[in-house]
Amino acid sequence: MARYTGPTSKIARKFNDPIFGACKELKKKAYPPGQHGKNRRRKQSEYAIQLAAKQKAKYTYGVLERQFRNIFEKSAMKSGITGTNLLQFLEARLDNTVYRLGFAPTRRAARQLVSHKHITVNGKVVNIPSYTMKFGDVVGVRAKSQTNKVIKEATSGKQRTAYSWLEYNAENMTGKFVQFPERDEIPENIQEQLIVELYSK
């Protein structure tokens, strides 16, 4: 699957979850998209349910199949619960961290900020959205990018959600990655055990 660039409302309706952020269409049409979406009652197979769980995670974090597979294999090799490890590695991506720190309104926007060299890690510009954060890494906005329209709108006057694994410094417009989040601290509605079952076949 190439990175999805189509209508986000269709995907939100497909999974019945606003995975790209607030979605008015989801409220108006709380059923899957397509000609038969409203009347779809067919029972899904176990494989279909597991595949949907994986696709939802990929859409949520904007990760391609090969990247996702690599992250899963890395998660399986690490001690602990594979599904939790998977979500922790996804949360530790630079683009996701930029989004969680509130520098961008969506993960898509965060990915673009990173790619366009607006973001620094430990004072150095990093333009790789998939860069994996390490404990103690400090993410910041380049000095000349702090007037960027997207960043200004995302950081000005809005209630910022705080996350226990990130330390935010509003004065310097930076954030420190202090630890991997616990599973119950990750707000995404993803059934990671189904993904583990799918890849274990």
Rank of each mutant, 00 (worst) to 15 (best):
R108D: 15
H116N: 05
E91Q: 09
F89G: 09
L86W: 04
A76N: 11
Y131A: 07
I49K: 08
E167N: 11
I49H: 02
A143R: 12
F135R: 15
M133I: 13
N96W: 02
R108I: 14
N127K: 03
Q112G: 01
K124Y: 12
Y47R: 05
F68D: 01
V114L: 05
D95M: 01
V121D: 13
G83A: 10
A110E: 06
Q55T: 06
S75H: 02
V125Q: 04
S115G: 13
S79L: 13
K144W: 10
I151L: 03
N148T: 05
D95L: 02
Q50C: 02
Q44R: 15
W165F: 13
V114H: 04
T97K: 10
L90A: 00
E91Y: 07
G123D: 03
E167R: 08
R107W: 07
T161M: 15
R142H: 05
L51E: 00
S164E: 13
K78N: 04
S145G: 07
A52M: 15
N70W: 07
K124A: 12
Q67D: 07
V125A: 06
F89H: 15
K117Q: 12
Q55V: 05
A143Y: 12
R100S: 08
M77E: 09
E73I: 13
L51M: 03
L101N: 05
V126P: 05
H116F: 04
Y61H: 12
S156F: 15
Q55K: 07
E46H: 09
G80C: 04
V150F: 11
